Amino acid sequence: MEPASLIAAFGIGSLLTVLVQRFLETRSLSRQRQYDERKEAYVGLLESWVRGEDANFTDASARDTGHWLLRAQLVASPKVHDMLSEWGETKPGSDERISATKKLKSAMREDLRSL
């Protein structure tokens, strides 16, 4: 094999390695960012629910929950997004809300595991 073709082959191999590594790194960082965003929104929503129950569902607690609900809807998977909409249509403290909350928490766990 000629030295020029050996150098060219080594250069092309190195270039391909760098490109593949860059692609995998970018994909990994994107998934991690997506996981972090969803986790923050889901945990914030769950904490706002607790604060709302402690405050007996005041206007301020409703705004807090609405804030976190919107953030969760922005980053949620389609399944969780639909469940968030369903949850938002229920009345606080009702049996429907309790059932929707259980389903929603389960879907959130599945969503975070899938990333």
Rank of each mutant, 00 (worst) to 15 (best):
G52Y: 03
S48D: 01
E25H: 13
K39P: 00
L45I: 04
G11R: 06
S14G: 15
R38Y: 03
L24N: 04
E53M: 13
F23L: 11
F10N: 06
R63I: 11
S14A: 15
E40N: 02
Q34V: 11
Q34R: 15
G11D: 03
F10T: 14
F10K: 05
R38N: 02
L16R: 01
L15Q: 01
D54N: 11
S48W: 01
T26F: 06
V20W: 06
L19F: 14
R27D: 02
L6Q: 12
F23A: 10
Q32K: 13
R22H: 08
G52F: 00
R27L: 06
R31M: 09
R27N: 04
Q34M: 12
R22V: 07
E40S: 09
G13V: 10
E25Y: 12
F23T: 10
T58Y: 01
T17C: 12
Q32I: 13
T26G: 08
L29K: 11
E25L: 14
E47Q: 08
L16P: 00
A41L: 02
L69W: 13
F57M: 10
L19V: 15
V50I: 12
Y42H: 05
R38V: 08
Q21V: 10
G13Q: 05
F57G: 05
R31C: 04
D36H: 03
L19W: 12
R33H: 07
A41K: 00
D64P: 00
S61I: 09
E53Y: 07
R38W: 04
G52P: 00
T17E: 03
W49E: 06
R38D: 02
T17Q: 09
V18C: 09
L15I: 08
V20R: 04
K39A: 14
Q32E: 15
V43S: 05
D36K: 04
F23Y: 13
E47N: 07
S5A: 11
N56L: 13
H67M: 11
S30Y: 08
R63Q: 13
W68E: 04
R31S: 08
L15H: 03
R51K: 12
Q34L: 14
L45P: 03
G44E: 08
W68R: 02
E40G: 00
G66C: 05
W68D: 04
S61A: 07
S48H: 01
D54M: 13
L15C: 09
R63L: 13
D36G: 00
L19Q: 08
D59V: 06
A55S: 12
S48T: 05
R33I: 09
S30C: 03
D64E: 14
F10A: 15
